[in-house]
Nucleic acid binder design. Structure first.
Lengths: 329, 329
DNA sequence: ATGAAAGCGCTAACAC
DNA sequence: GTGTTAGCGCTTTCAT
């Protein structure tokens, strides 16, 4: 591989001039520009990003710590973020969440430009340790942390209205016995995520018993329904914390011999591809993963330029499909 | 951040000794080890990976170029690869495929340790340019390239039997009019992927007309079925090149007012989570994404150690579920 | 067994 | 405008 030195020699200029040319700072005459340009092409030169990173203490890589890439919501998020980052000159260093100190130290030793994390599997202290090093951090807020370090930027989802909207929608459909399936570990105050907290608020205290905790994927949801209910005692509607879970419920309920939406209504969350192409189509609260991917990247970039960055709010939107529309039949 | 120099000073040894200690080469006395260990802990030191990369010309990052992370098959693959890589001391630099020269140059300038690519969106020449630089390359083979550079390692899927197996299975179910939905751009020789080629071989020449090309995701598949067929003239079985496409077909067929599997049988490919939890459960040819993730990482690592690495063969396995099982009813 | 020193490829302050 | 140079944090050869 040709280095900057080779280019300088070939073009008959100094190494510094090549740097100036590449980074478009400093002064370099039209004459020199041309010769450098030619030398670069001739040698098929490409600047060594590692050497550059070492010098400027920034690798132009953003770390994405995602709960679960196998959940299409995160896949869509990462997909978009990757493209958005590339357009701005960055790459994505991808990681499943492995929440130990060793891991975070290792990844930070790449002099990363910033970090995105969905926050329900990573500890607050670890995030704070990173932001303290001056690395921009954005979290997709899920669990509500108290007194989080102010330097951590947040993308917040405003759940204040959506569960009420869902409740009204189900009621109109004549569903009376609604069960919520939560991804939170338990009902304990410090383990409850924002969705669950808002669901509880929306349905009121008296309905808090109608919640099952700690179900996060399709398989678990299917098992839960299959193991817990029979055709006779199944709730007539389920609200699920993500689409993957909802799909599991659809499958489980169908297996019990019940029909959707005639016997049981199902509502998902995230409006991923899955919900659109589930059979029957799944009613789902849309949170745009693409939007979050884009926003996360621009927040990280702005922050790394030293700009002041405000937290970002997203309001979910209910997309109604067949799985909860008994009235249309 | 503390540097190696700080540690050396704190421990009262030379910088070189710290290096020896960290990399576990060279000699360092028990005495010195202890003092270095203490200094590292006291200063919370972590070696700078970028500086190390520059020196050893290897960043311990593998690039994963995936067709489409939003397809759960690739999501599962990347998920597993990420963990496997981490255990061996590597990270994953993730990219959607952006197949231009500029892009590849930029990513290689990170002195990457290796590259994985699924090969149906990236050009052969580009891969060959990379392997020529001495960077280990593994492809998940899909399109059959002729005279590919020998240094490119391949994970091959042996489709020689699976389509025959599927054909027999459908015939047993009484399905007579089978249509294949291909991901290949067209039927042209240099654009046909391995799956399609083998499907053609399995069903014989006379059935080659029963193929639709250039459909790769759920949405396209749904549109295709909805736009092309009516309840009366729909084929009675579809074989699809991946599960995402199969889901779209299920949805499209259902919308035509036909039932699965009674009226129409559907077979997918890849056996992702989607097929397991589709309603009805989707018959699918299993190719273990997890296995491929693991294998890819170990091939890259072995190659980077200078070992001789053989291509890897995977044989798909038909997983039969409800979507093609008319006889069970 | 340990340390001094050169050098990986780049940036940027400074001198001309 | 352009070149010289120091130095980013690390590895490793060679001398001791």
């Amino acid at each position: 591989m040709a280095s900057r030195k080779d280019v300088a020699r070939e073009a008959g200029v100094s190494a510094a001039s090549v740097s100036y040319y590449i980074n478009n700072n400093g002064y370099v005459s039209a004459e020199a520009r041309k010769r450098i340009q030619e030398a670069i092409e001739k040698l098929n030169y490409s600047p060594n990003q590692i050497a550059r990173s070492l010098k400027i203490k920034d690798s132009k890589q953003f770390v994405f710590l995602c709960n679960e890439i196998r959940n299409p919501f995160y896949a869509q998020l990462v997909y978009r973020a990757t493209n958005a980052a590339y357009e701005k000159g960055y790459f994505i260093l991808f990681s499943n969440v492995i929440d130990d100190d060793e891991y975070l130290k290792r990844i930070c030793s790449y002099q990363i430009s910033g970090l995105f994390a969905s926050n329900n599997k990573i500890k607050k202290e670890n995030l704070e340790a990173i932001v303290k090093q001056g690395i921009p951090v954005v979290v997709l807020r899920d669990v509500a942390w108290s007194d989080l370090d102010q330097r951590i930027m947040q993308i917040k989802i405003d759940y204040s209205n959506i569960f009420h909207e869902i409740a009204v929608h189900l009621e109109k459909g004549g569903y009376r016995n609604v069960h919520y399936i939560s991804g939170a570990k338990s009902g304990k105050p410090d383990e409850v995520d924002e969705k669950t907290r808002n669901y509880r608020n929306a349905v009121g205290r008296e309905r808090s018993g109608d919640i099952t905790y700690n179900i996060t994927d399709t398989k678990e949801a299917f098992q839960f329904v299959a193991d817990t209910y029979s055709k006779e005692d199944c709730p007539d509607a389920f609200v699920c914390s993500n689409d993957a879970v909802a799909i599991g419920v659809v499958k489980g309920v169908t297996q019990l011999g019940l029909r959707i939406p005639e016997d049981v209504g199902v509502v998902g969350f995230d409006n991923t591809f899955q919900s659109r192409f589930c059979v029957p189509g799944l009613t789902s609260a849309e949170i745009s993963a693409e939007k979050i991917g884009d926003i996360a990247i621009s927040m990280l970039i702005e922050k790394s330029k030293g700009q002041k960055v405000e937290d970002y709010q997203i309001v979910p939107k209910l997309i109604i499909r067949e799985s909860s529309s008994r009235n249309d039949l």
